[in-house]
Nucleic acid binder design. Structure first.
Lengths: 234, 234
DNA sequence: TTGCTTATTGGTCGCACACTCAATAGCATC
DNA sequence: GATGCTATTGAGTGTGCGACCAATAAGCAA
């Protein structure tokens, strides 16, 4: 299935090539899993030879960690932008929950699950996971704190509140590979409900505000590959 | 480094041998991970040849699923015995939380994480995981319902309550491979606190009742972790 | 003791993996 | 157009995996 004969080798700058490799690996990580990031698989995707991947990443584990970091960072940026758009904090969080509990987040749930398990064997990846965890927690804490300062939320400890919300999200994400659709809506809403309770909001507040949005220039992200369908694992 | 020379082959009944294989696989699953269940690894552990494992489990995936099921069932049985001991429902649950949030449960947390991820690629395992999930949920629901009937707990929907508790436990277990020790006690207590809120109990009710126990022949869990005391950084 | 069933072995095959390194060729520079 | 740097290739190493199967021997029954 490679693109026929290898006609001409294309020579790129190390920076470009490296970025290209990481991007390809991140895509594979999201769609097929971190253990599918192999020299052969990534090389095939980029139509180069496996040796080239080795050249840029002498140890595959480093590429795996980099791929996870890249995918997670990108997701967080689209999920909870560093500079909160002018809308209310409530809308900001509502959009966060709409996304994290919807099917659009399934790949990311799977990736977190994947990374957390693989961390058991891969120290470099584990460090990345820890870094991303504190990044996500910090970002959510910031969003909560901003809402508190605006008078929209009410909580004693924004940090603990963020942790409580994330624990619920992680708990729900645990089932990404086993039973997505069979959850009753009361379960799917668990994360938002937790946030509402923690932040002193009325029930359903964080669920309804998703649609009346002034369109913050966030169309379908171009990085999301729906297809591929090929899944194998020996 | 096998136990010296293969002196004499020992012939066992198929049932015994099969049980022995599953038990060994379950041990490996708990201590090293499900992907370490290989023909060679299990054969080495039992001091037999790999071919023998293949003979009893022509497809390794079946052994992996069986090993997970075996380990999970055993754990559940010790965690929430089917026939609740004569003690109060509150004690029953308190012991459950003491165990699930303590380090004694780390291996099991890792195993669940492992199995849930691996379910992505292994259909047979996925079915087992789904089965165990409903088993655990059912058992916890039963414990909750028993407490409600005794007048010790108060909840509208025991099933939903059980799910909410399990989601928190799963969320906490997500971090089994990436720093469980650095959680502040408020986080470790999250599961019990959720149960207390759900069941209409006062704060700390499910944490204190662990020590004044009439000794129900429950070895192995004297580690009443009051808190790891480590600070956290956001 | 002898014979027979079958649990167990030993060996082999094909595959996928990470990693290494000398040889090659793209391309910017002169 | 020639030159030199180096990004890229091709070929090969060794390991571990699941799966397969004919040969072997353990231990029960006759």
């Amino acid at each position: 299935m490679t693109s026929s004969v290898q006609r001409k080798r294309i020579r790129k700058s190390p920076d470009d090539r490296r970025a290209e490799i990481v991007e390809a690996a991140a895509t594979v990580a999201l769609t097929e899993g971190l253990e599918c990031i192999t020299l052969r698989r990534i090389a095939e995707q980029l139509d180069v030879r496996p040796g080239l991947i080795s050249h840029y990443f002498p140890a595959v584990e480093d590429l795996v960690a980099e791929a996870f970091g890249s995918a997670a960072t990108a997701e967080l940026e689209s999920l909870l932008p560093a500079d909160p758009p002018d809308g209310s904090s409530l809308n900001h969080l509502a959009r966060f929950f709409a996304r994290t509990t919807g099917p659009a987040y399934d790949d990311m749930s799977r990736l977190w699950l994947n990374a957390r398990h693989l961390s058991r064997y891969r120290p470099v990846l584990r460090e990345r996971v820890l870094g991303q965890e504190s990044l996500w927690r910090g970002r959510l804490t910031g969003a909560v704190r901003a809402g508190v300062e605006r008078g929209e939320f009410r909580t004693e400890d924004p940090d603990l509140t963020a942790i409580r919300i994330l624990v619920v999200i992680d708990g729900l994400a645990s089932h990404a590979n086993t039973g997505l659709g069979n959850h009753p809506s009361a379960v799917i809403r668990l994360a938002a409900a937790t946030a509402e309770r923690e932040l002193g909001l009325a029930d359903g507040t964080l669920a309804l505000a998703t649609e009346p949005e002034p369109a913050t220039a966030e169309p379908g992200s171009p990085t999301t590959e729906p297809g591929s369908g090929t899944e194998e694992q020996s």
